[in-house]
């Protein structure tokens, strides 16, 4: 589904990504982990077409990202960025409805079918009760759920999540991840997510890539990559097994 060939990127003189090679199959729940400044967000920006001027090649569905037109790309992928700064008092419904933009023609209102999709996305993210509320009046975690609903309303083939759960409480992080996992299973959605919570990565991702200093440390199945020794080498923290599939970071260095 997604293929990166020798991708490098520089911010000025600082080399942020160095010769990254990656491949992600369709229907994969793919995690990107690494310490601060490892290049995770930059990697996501390159793959989603938000940064140009990188070297190497990025292919989405066997087509180079440089050959996509912007509307076509928006129908294929959607992105939940680290932070969405909404400064005007739109209602949550208006925000989620914007997710249908790539499918609608200008000056036409949304069809009942589109509205139904919007409604479903708001229901599964538990935001339907905010439909008529102003997004500027929601808490950080609630706002993130609305933005997630908007990204889902885009009905993408690939969903990119950049710390999309960082402000949600534990309940909603797990709930939203479950919703996304369900979509992966039922519709073959491909998910690429950047997360700091190693526990959640271990529990939900099927494949993981570990980055450090702009380079791939290891890519492979979640069991192979999320190994205590390797994690200690990169993150300098100790982890222990927790629950059935989880991982707990120990509060000691």
């Amino acid at each position: 589904m997604i293929l990166l060939k020798d991708v490098s990127f520089q911010y000025g003189s600082k080399e942020v990504l160095k010769n990254i090679n990656l491949s992600v199959k369709k229907g994969c729940f793919f995690g990107v982990i690494g310490p601060n400044g490892a290049g995770k967000t930059t990697l996501l920006k390159v793959v989603t077409g938000n940064l140009t001027g990188f070297s190497g090649d990025v292919y989405i569905k066997d087509k180079s990202i440089r050959d996509f037109n912007i509307k076509e790309l928006a129908r294929c992928i959607s992105v939940v960025p680290q932070q969405v700064d909404i400064r005007f008092p739109y209602t949550c419904l208006e925000i989620v409805m914007m997710g249908r933009t790539p499918y609608k023609s200008r000056l036409k209102s949304l069809s009942p079918k589109d509205l139904n999709i919007v409604k479903k996305c708001m229901e599964i993210t538990d935001t339907i009760q905010f439909a008529d509320c102003l997004v500027t009046e929601l808490s950080g975690g609630e706002k993130q759920r609305v933005v997630l609903a908007k990204a889902l309303a885009q009905q993408p083939e690939v969903l990119f999540l950049d710390e999309a759960f960082s402000n949600m409480d534990a309940y909603y992080s797990i709930k939203c991840l479950n919703v996304i996992k369900q979509l992966v299973k039922e519709r073959g959605l491909t998910v690429i997510c950047v997360m700091h919570d190693l526990n959640l990565v271990k529990a939900f991702c099927s494949e993981v890539v570990m980055l450090q200093n702009g380079q791939v440390v290891k890519q492979g199945t979640v069991e192979a990559v999320m190994e205590p020794k390797l994690i200690h080498g990169t993150f300098k923290v100790k982890v222990a097994k927790a629950g059935n599939s989880g991982l707990a970071v120990l509060p000691e260095l």
Binding site: T48, G49, N50, I70, K71, E72, L73, A74, R75, S78, V79, P81, V84, D85, I86, R87, F88, Y90, E94, M98, G99, T101, P102, R106, L107, A151, Q154
Partner: peptide, 23 residues
């Protein structure tokens, strides 16, 4: 008025606009 809908999306920032298929 003709482009008002795109203006809504643009007011969320360039990155969001791009993600929704708007230059």
């Amino acid at each position: 008025c003709y482009y008002a809908e795109d203006l809504n999306i643009l007011s969320l920032g360039d990155q969001e606009a791009r993600n929704l298929g708007i230059d």
